[in-house]
Design a protein around this nucleic acid. Structure first.
Length: 1169
RNA sequence: GGUCACGUGGCGGAAUUGGUAUACGCGUACGUCUCAGAAGCGUAUCCCGUAAGGGUUGGGGGUUCGAGUCCCCCCGUGACCACCA
C-alpha cells in the first residue's frame, strides 16, 4: 500500500455497494471493534437496550438508538478509550410463543431464525458492536445465571410465594404484574383483565424501595427519568395511628400523611378487603347489608372501581365505634370502595374538612365536617414581604369579595403606593362583624352603596409588612362575599382616590392580577369551595390550637401514640408467569420438604423440548410440554438418602383408632383394597378376631360411639392392616443401613415378624408404648427380634422419657415414620429442630424409590433476563460465575446507557434492584449499574403512528441500504430530528444526506498535498466544526452536528482546493456517522490504519477565532443594520461607530438618545425618545 | 383529574447565558448542462408591499433597552400516572 505522503490514488464514482460490505468484512477480520480486557487502559462501556428479536424483522426505528450510541462509541475509540459496545438478544417472550402456537414451530427454532435475521440486518448497518460478546437470554448457558441469581434471592428470603388475586389475561393466558395492566386491560393485547387467585412467586423489591429512591441522587440520569422513577416508587412519609374500637379488643390502624388533621376526624374507613372486616361482621347490626355491599364491590372490575370519576360508595358498620386516640372521641366506622386495601394499612382516618375525597364522601352520606386548619400565608416577595426583624401586630380583619350587579365581574383594588393588587380589606373595629365592617369599608373605599353581605367564605391568616403603618401585620381575616344590587355610588374622598384605583375584572383576570399570597388564597377559597387541603394554623385542636400545622405533625403523632413511618406506592414484583417461553424457576415442590431450590451445580433447569408439536385449530399452547415435565426427584431427598442412620416407626396407629389415616394410606399403597377375606385368613401371622377396645377412660357416650364404629369398620381394619404391612415391608427391604427402630409393643405381634422377614438389621429397638408393662414389652420385642435386652429402650409419654429419647438420638440425623396421636404428634414435639420427621408415606422419596416431587412450572417474566445482562457482557463465556469479579471491577458500571422512555419505570427500576441486591452480596463492585442514562425518541411511520406489521406501515432498512447505502441510512437517522424526540419517518428526505456524502466524495478530487501555506479560512472552518461536532455528539445533538458538517462542506466546496490535513479532519469528524465511506476515502489518501483508530481531531481555539465581528445596530430594539468591527473592540468605540453608522443616523434624527446598550462583539442598541 | 413535556415556513427542524428568528435538509420555481430525460450545478423560496418600510415563533397579558427563549392566564398536542390517604 501507499505511504501517507504518496499521491492519492484516483477514485471512481461513489458506489456504496462496493464500499460498505468490503469494509464490514475487513473490520470483522481485523477485530477492529473488539473490546480488550486490559485493566491498564481507560475504558468506556456504552450500552443500548438489547433487542427482542421479533418475527417482523428489523424496521428503521430499531437502529436509531444503536446508531446514536455507535457515534459515541466510535468517538470514544478515537479519543483513546478501550470501548465495550456489546449486543445480545432479549429473546424470551410472548410473541415468539404465540407464533409457535400459530405455526407449530418450536420457540427455540423461531428465536434462532429471528436472531439470525436481526444479526444480519444490524451488521449491514455497520454498528461497531463487539460481536464476540453476543449473548442470548434463551441460551441455557446464559439463563443458568438468571436462575442462579433467583436462587440467591430465594436464599436471602427476597423471593417468596404468595397466594394472591392476580391480574389474569384471558387471551394470553398469563398472569400480569400491576405494571403490565394499563387501564384495566392487558398491556400487550388490550383484553380486559380478570381476577384470579393463584400462588405466585414474588420478589421483595419493596425492601429496596428507599435505596432505589435515594440513590438516584448519585447517578447522571435525565431529570425526567429520575422524576418518573421517583413517582413510581412513590415514597411518602406519614403517621400510623391506632384507633381502638369501643368495647372490643381489635384496633384499626390507619396511615395518614396529615396527622395534623387528627382533631378533624369524623369517621374511619376500611377497605372492603380489609382483614378486620370479617371479624367485625359478626357484631355489625346491618350485617346483611354490609355483606351485600362487599359482594357488589368485589363484582366490579378494576376498571370500574379505579375510575376516579365514579362516585364513591360505602356503608357504615353500625354498632362499631372507633376511638380517636387524641381526644377519645367516638367516631363511626365505614367501609368504602375509595380506600385501597394494598396501600398504607388499608384503612384511613377521614377528615372531610381537609381532604377532597373524604369531603365528597361525607357530603354524600351526610357525615359531619369539622375544620381544624385555617390557611396561613406569609408574604415573602415584594414591598409587603415580612420584615424578620420587626415584631408582629395582630388584628382581626375582613377581605371583601364583591360581585358586580349585572356582570360576572369582581371588584379589585389596585393600591398605588405599594403595588398591592387585591380586594377591599379592612380591620374590624370594636364589636363589628365581618359583614358590617366589610360594608363600611366598601362604602369608604369605593363609594358603592348597595353592597349586600351574602355569606362568609372562610378564614384566612396572613403575615405581611404593612407599609402604611410600618409594622409587621399578622392579620386574622374572615373572607366575606358581597353582591352589589346596583351601581349607585357616593363620592369617594380625595385621600382614598389617591391611594388606589378600583377596577372590575372577570374571574380569569382576577386570578391573573392578584399579586399577594393571601389574596390568591382568598380567591382560591371562593372559587374552589371549603375543602382546604393546605397547611395552616390549627384551630379547635385541643392543646395544639394556634400552632402551625406543618410543624405539629410529629408532635400530634406522638400525643396520639402513633408511629412516624415511610410508605411506598411500589409493590413487590410478581415474578411468576404461567407461560412456556421463559426461564424456568429453578425449584422443586416436594411433598416432604416443601419448596426445594435446585442445587446450583444442577443449573440450568432447562426448558423441555416441545416434540411432535402440532398446531390445533384452537391453538394449543406449548405449555402442553410442561405436563411431561413436572415429575422429578427432590434434590433434598436425594441428598438426604445417604445420611439417615436411624429409623423410627410407631405402629400405634395400626391398631389404634385413626382409621382415616390408614384408609388414605391404603389407597396410596395400592394393595390393601384388593385383599379378599379368604386370603386374609390364610395368612399365618394374621389373626382375624373382633376389634377390641378399652373404654374405661371414656364417657358412656364415647364408649357407645366406639362400639358402633367397630361394628361398622372392624373387618376393614383387618384388611387394611394386612395390606399396609405387605406394602410397608416391601419398602423396608430397601433400607440398608438403619440402626434404630421405634415400635409399639401393641403392634409388635404383627410388626415384628414382618420386619424380621424383611431382613433388616436393626441394632437398637425403641419400644414406645404406654399400654403394657415395661418388662413384658421389652422382653417380647427383644426375643422376637433377637437382640440384646441392653440395646432396647422403653418409653412412656412422660417428660423424663422424652429427655432420654433425645439423648439417645443425640446428634445423628433421624428419619422418623410415625402415626397416630401418640406417635407422630408426640415425636414432632420432642425431636430436635433440625431432624427430619416423616410420615409413613414420606418414606418413599426419602429412599429415592419413586419420589413424587414436582418441578415448578412457572417461568420468569421477560424482565428477569434483562435485569442483569449488562454484567454478562463483561465476561460472556464464563462457566464458573456470571462474570469474573475482576472483569466486573474493570468494566462496570455502565458509563452510558441509552434506552426508551417506556422502560424507565419497569426495566430500569428492576435492573437497579437486581444490581443492588448483587452489590449487597459482594458480587458487583458498585451499588448502581448505570452511571448515565439518556433516552431516544421512537421513529414513527409517516402518518405519526407506531410502526407495526399489523398496520402494514413498516419500513425495512434492507431496501434503504440496498438503494442508498448504510451510511446514508445512518446519517439520515441521526439528522432527521432531535435524538430524544419521537419523529415520523420520511424516506424522501434521505436524498439530502446521500447528496452530502456524494459531495464529500467529490471533494476528494480537490485534495492537495503540496506545502502551500494553509488558508486561514479553511482552518477556521475546520476548527469551528471540530468544536461544534465534538460538543454536539456529547449532548446527543446529532442533527446539529451533521448540519454543521454540511455547513463546513458548503464553505470548503467554494475553494479551488483543500489541504489533505483539513480534508482528513473533515473525514474524521464524519467517521462516527458514516463509517464506511470515510474509511474508504481515508484509505484512499494512503492511510494504513483505520480511520476509526485515528485520534479524534483536537480543537484549536486560536484557529477558530474570528478577527472581525458583525455588530448589529438596533434603534429602540429594532434592527436597523450592521457593521463589521474588529473582535473585542471597546464598548465606547462600538457606541461611537454605531451612532455614526449612516443607516442608524437616519433613525436618530430629531430624537434624543437616552441610553445606549452595548454587547461586545454582538450589538449596539440605541434607545431614543 | 394530576404531573411533566411541547407548540417556530408547504414539510423535518435550527437558534450558547434573553442579543441578526426561520440555520441545515426536504420540497417547489426558474436557469444551466443535454438530441432528450435523469443526475449534477446555479439562483430564489416566512407573509404584506413596486419600493421605502411593516408584520410574524398557538392566542392574550407582563418583565426588559431587547423575548421563540423568563413570568401569568387561556387554547391545543403528546407522554406518564390515575381515588396512593
Amino acid at each position: 500500500m501507499n505511504k501517507k505522503s504518496s499521491q492519492p490514488k484516483p477514485l471512481g464514482a461513489y458506489d456504496h455497494k462496493k464500499v460498505e460490505v468490503a469494509w464490514q468484512k475487513h473490520w470483522s477480520k481485523k477485530k477492529t471493534f473488539q473490546a480488550q480486557d486490559d485493566p491498564k487502559k481507560k475504558k468506556f462501556f456504552g450500552l443500548i437496550e438489547f433487542p427482542y428479536p421479533s418475527g417482523d424483522g428489523l424496521h428503521v426505528g430499531h437502529p436509531r438508538p444503536y446508531i446514536g450510541m455507535d457515534v459515541i462509541a466510535r468517538k470514544r475509540r478515537m479519543q483513546g478509550y478501550n470501548v465495550l459496545y456489546p449486543i445480545g438478544w432479549d429473546a424470551f417472550g410472548l410473541p415468539t410463543e404465540n407464533y409457535a402456537i400459530k405455526t407449530g414451530i418450536q420457540p427455540s427454532i423461531v428465536t434462532k431464525k429471528n436472531t439470525d435475521t436481526f444479526r444480519r440486518q444490524i451488521q449491514s448497518i455497520g454498528v461497531s458492536f463487539d460481536w464476540s460478546r453476543e449473548i442470548n437470554t434463551t441460551d441455557p448457558a446464559y439463563y443458568r445465571w438468571t436462575q442462579w441469581i433467583f436462587l440467591q434471592f430465594l436464599k436471602k428470603g427476597l423471593a417468596y410465594k404468595k397466594k394472591m388475586t392476580i391480574n389474569w389475561c384471558p387471551k394470553d393466558l398469563i398472569g400480569l404484574a400491576n405494571e403490565e395492566v394499563v387501564n384495566g386491560c392487558c398491556e400487550r393485547c388490550g383484553t380486559p383483565v380478570e381476577k384470579r387467585t393463584k400462588e405466585q412467586w414474588m420478589l421483595a423489591i419493596t425492601k429496596y424501595a428507599d435505596r432505589l429512591d435515594k440513590d438516584l441522587d448519585t447517578v447522571d440520569f435525565l431529570d425526567r427519568i429520575k422524576t418518573q422513577q421517583r413517582n413510581w416508587i412513590g415514597k411518602s412519609e406519614g403517621a400510623e395511628i391506632r384507633f381502638a374500637l369501643k368495647d372490643r379488643s381489635e384496633k384499626i390502624e390507619v396511615f395518614t400523611t396529615r396527622p395534623d388533621t387528627l382533631y378533624g376526624v369524623t369517621y374511619v374507613v376500611l377497605a372492603p378487603e380489609h382483614s378486620l372486616v370479617s371479624s367485625l361482621l359478626a357484631s355489625v347490626e346491618n350485617k346483611a347489608e354490609v355483606e351485600n355491599y362487599i359482594g357488589e364491590v368485589k363484582k366490579a372490575t378494576d376498571i370500574e372501581r379505579t375510575d376516579a370519576k365514579k362516585e364513591k360508595t360505602g356503608i357504615e358498620l353500625k354498632g362499631i365505634k372507633a376511638i380517636n386516640p387524641i381526644n377519645q372521641e367516638e367516631v363511626p366506622v365505614w367501609i368504602a370502595d375509595y380506600v385501597l386495601a394494598d396501600y398504607g394499612t388499608g384503612a384511613v382516618m377521614a377528615v372531610p374538612a381537609h381532604d377532597e375525597r373524604d369531603h365528597a364522601f361525607a357530603k354524600k352520606y351526610g357525615l359531619p365536617v369539622r375544620a381544624v386548619i385555617e390557611s396561613l400565608s406569609s408574604q415573602t416577595e415584594g414591598p409587603d414581604a415580612v420584615k424578620p426583624e420587626l415584631p408582629f401586630v395582630e388584628r382581626r380583619a375582613v377581605i371583601c369579595i364583591i360581585k358586580h350587579w349585572s356582570e360576572d365581574k369582581y371588584l379589585m383594588s389596585f393600591y398605588k403606593a405599594n403595588d398591592w393588587k387585591g380586594f377591599i380589606v379592612g380591620g374590624l373595629e370594636g364589636d363589628e362583624t365581618p359583614a358590617s365592617a366589610g360594608a363600611r369599608e366598601i362604602h369608604e373605599e369605593t363609594g358603592y352603596t348597595s353592597a349586600r353581605f351574602v355569606r362568609n367564605i372562610g378564614k384566612l391568616h396572613s403575615k405581611f409588612y404593612h407599609q402604611v403603618k410600618s409594622v409587621n401585620r399578622f392579620a386574622h381575616f374572615e373572607i366575606a362575599y358581597f353582591e352589589l344590587t346596583d351601581g349607585k355610588r357616593d363620592e369617594v374622598s380625595e385621600e382614598e382616590k389617591k391611594l388606589h384605583d378600583v377596577v372590575w375584572l372577570s374571574p380569569q383576570e382576577v386570578a391573573a392580577a392578584a399579586n399577594r399570597a393571601d389574596i390568591i388564597r382568598a380567591w382560591d377559597f371562593f372559587t374552589r369551595g371549603t375543602c382546604y387541603t393546605g397547611e395552616g394554623l390549627l384551630v379547635d385542636s385541643g392543646s395544639f390550637t394556634g400552632k402551625e400545622s406543618e410543624s405539629s405533625k410529629k408532635t400530634i403523632t406522638e400525643s396520639a401514640k402513633g408511629r412516624w413511618v415511610t410508605t411506598f406506592k411500589l409493590r413487590d414484583w410478581i415474578f411468576s408467569r404461567q407461560r412456556y417461553w421463559g426461564e424456568p424457576i429453578p425449584v422443586v415442590h416436594c411433598d416432604l420438604c416443601g419448596i426445594v431450590p435446585v442445587p446450583e451445580k444442577d443449573l440450568p433447569v432447562k426448558l423441555p423440548t416441545v416434540k411432535n408439536y402440532k398446531p390445533t385449530e384452537t391453538g394449543e399452547s406449548p405449555l402442553a410440554a410442561i405436563s411431561k415435565w413436572v415429575n422429578t426427584t427432590c434434590p433434598n431427598c436425594i441428598a438426604n438418602k445417604k445420611k439417615p442412620k436411624y429409623l423410627i416407626f410407631d405402629f400405634d396407629g395400626v391398631l389404634g383408632d385413626t382409621w382415616d389415616v390408614m384408609n388414605s394410606s391404603k389407597v396410596k399403597m395400592g394393595v390393601a383394597s384388593s385383599i379378599e377375606d379368604a386370603q386374609v385368613s390364610s395368612l399365618a401371622h394374621f389373626e382375624k378376631k373382633p376389634m377390641e377396645t378399652r373404654t374405661e377412660n371414656m364417657t358412656p357416650e364415647e364408649a357407645a360411639k366406639r362400639q358402633q364404629w367397630i361394628a361398622t369398620f372392624g373387618r376393614h381394619m383387618a384388611e387394611t392392616k394386612f395390606g399396609l404391612f405387605q406394602g410397608f415391608v416391601k419398602e423396608l427391604k430397601k433400607i440398608k443401613n438403619a440402626k434404630l427402630a421405634v415400635v409399639s409393643a401393641g403392634s409388635a405381634q404383627y410388626v415384628l415378624p414382618a420386619l424380621k422377614k424383611s431382613g433388616l438389621k436393626f441394632t437398637h429397638i425403641l419400644a414406645y408404648e404406654d399400654h403394657h408393662s415395661k418388662e413384658e414389652k421389652v422382653e417380647k420385642v427383644c426375643k422376637d427380634w433377637g437382640i440384646d435386652v441392653t440395646d432396647a429402650y422403653y418409653f412412656t409419654d412422660t417428660k423424663a422419657d422424652v429427655l432420654e429419647l433425645e439423648g439417645i438420638m443425640n446428634k445423628d440425623k433421624i428419619i422418623g415414620c410415625a402415626w397416630g396421636y401418640h406417635g407422630f404428634d408426640r415425636l414432632k414435639e420432642i425431636l430436635p429442630e433440625k431432624q427430619i420427621l416423616l410420615k409413613f408415606n414420606d418414606i418413599r422419596p426419602v429412599l429415592n424409590l419413586d419420589c413424587t416431587a414436582k418441578r415448578e412450572t412457572d417461568t420468569m417474566p421477560n424482565w428477569a433476563g434483562s435485569s442483569w445482562y449488562y454484567l454478562r457482557y463483561a465476561d460472556p463465556k464464563n462457566t464458573k460465575m456470571f462474570a469474573d469479579p475482576k472483569k466486573l471491577d474493570y468494566w462496570t458500571p455502565v458509563d452510558w446507557y441509552n434506552g426508551g422512555m417506556e422502560h424507565t419505570t419497569l426495566h430500569l427500576l428492576y435492573s437497579r434492584f437486581w444490581h443492588k441486591f448483587l452489590f449487597d452480596l459482594g458480587l458487583v463492585p458498585t451499588s448502581e449499574p448505570y452511571q448515565k442514562r439518556t433516552s431516544h425518541g421512537l421513529i414513527l411511520a409517516a402518518g405519526g403512528e407506531k410502526m407495526s406489521k399489523s398496520k402494514g406501515n413498516v419500513i425495512n432498512p434492507d431496501s434503504i441500504i440496498e438503494t442508498v447505502g448504510a451510511d446514508s441510512l445512518r446519517l439520515y437517522e441521526m439528522f432527521m430530528g432531535p435524538f430524544d424526540q419521537p419523529i415520523a419517518w420520511n424516506t424522501d428526505n434521505i436524498a439530502g444526506v446521500r447528496r452530502f456524502i456524494e459531495r464529500v466524495w467529490k471533494l476528494r478530487e480537490k485534495v492537495v498535498t503540496s506545502e502551500t501555506k494553509p488558508g486561514t479560512t479553511e482552518a477556521k472552518i475546520i476548527h469551528k466544526t471540530i468544536k461544534k461536532v465534538s460538543d454536539d455528539i456529547e449532548a446527543m445533538r446529532f442533527n446539529t452536528a451533521i448540519s454543521s458538517l454540511m455547513i463546513a462542506l458548503n464553505e470548503l466546496e467554494k475553494n479551488e482546493s483543500i489541504r489533505q490535513g483539513s480534508y482528513e479532519m473533515l473525514l474524521q469528524l464524519l467517521a462516527p456517522f458514516a463509517p464506511h465511506v470515510t474509511e474508504e476515502l481515508w484509505s484512499s489518501l494512503g492511510n494504513k490504519d483505520s480511520i476509526h483508530a485515528s485520534p479524534w481531531p483536537v480543537y484549536d481555539p486560536t484557529l477558530a477565532v474570528e478577527s472581525e465581528a458583525t455588530i448589529m445596530v438596533q434603534v429602540n430594539g429594532k434592527i436597523r443594520g450592521s457593521f463589521v468591527a474588529a473582535v473585542d473592540t471597546a464598548r465606547e468605540e462600538l457606541e461611537r461607530l454605531a451612532q455614526e453608522y449612516p443607516e442608524a443616523k437616519k433613525w436618530l434624527e430629531g430624537k434624543s438618545v437616552t441610553k445606549v446598550i452595548v454587547v461586545p462583539n454582538k450589538l449596539v442598541n440605541i434607545v431614543v425618545v
